[in-house]
């Protein structure tokens, strides 16, 4: 875990314009805000995208991050998604060394984590897992002894719990 201060999950609705990712990423780089992950994709409306940014900083820095994001013309709305009232998920793909002997025990762990084997090769299996970050970390730790050949994660994505949503109204 890098950076100082508490981790904050920020959800940002943006106009799906060319360069909008650069604007947001550039803002973080230029003002020296530390960023753990950033994921982005379209919303139901194709001209609006939603970014989920995991940033670190003390309260003053986090306040500035929100205000500076709000100043970007392409940014429509910025909300914080605190852990207690949000669901966080991340997807990871892990390619683990697997020979006929180890395949069964890997499969057992996969079942416990409700992960899925999505590709099998003579010397490896590729596993897909979604979950919050502690779950993913625990799974990765368990795969380590078998030998991880490759690992890729999407970065965190998040939504508010319950009926709340990031409506455009207010």
């Amino acid at each position: 875990m890098s950076g100082e201060g508490k981790r904050h999950v920020i959800s940002v609705l943006v106009e799906n314009q060319p360069g909008v990712l650069t604007r947001v990423a550039g803002l973080f780089a230029r003002r020296g805000y530390s960023i753990d992950s950033l994921s982005v994709g379209e919303t139901r409306e194709p001209d609006i995208s939603r970014m989920t940014i995991v940033a670190r900083g003390d309260d003053a820095i986090i306040e500035q991050i929100k205000k500076q994001l709000d100043k970007l013309i392409d940014v429509i709305k910025v909300v914080f998604l605190p852990a207690e009232s949000s669901v966080y998920r991340e997807l990871v793909l892990v390619k683990v060394k697997a020979d006929p002997e180890s395949r069964a025990s890997i499969s057992g762990i996969v079942d416990i984590f409700r992960a899925r084997i999505i590709d099998v090769a003579p010397n490896s299996v590729t596993v897909e897992l979604t979950g919050d970050q502690p779950k993913i970390q625990a799974f990765v730790d368990l795969m380590e002894p078998y030998g991880i050949r490759e690992l890729v994660r999407t970065g965190l994505t998040a939504l508010q719990r319950g009926d709340e949503d990031i409506s455009l109204d207010d």
Partner: peptide, 11 residues
């Protein structure tokens, strides 16, 4: 007029 100026350089 700019909210980002509040608490940027001084509290």
């Amino acid at each position: 007029i700019d909210p980002a100026e509040i608490n940027k350089n001084i509290a």
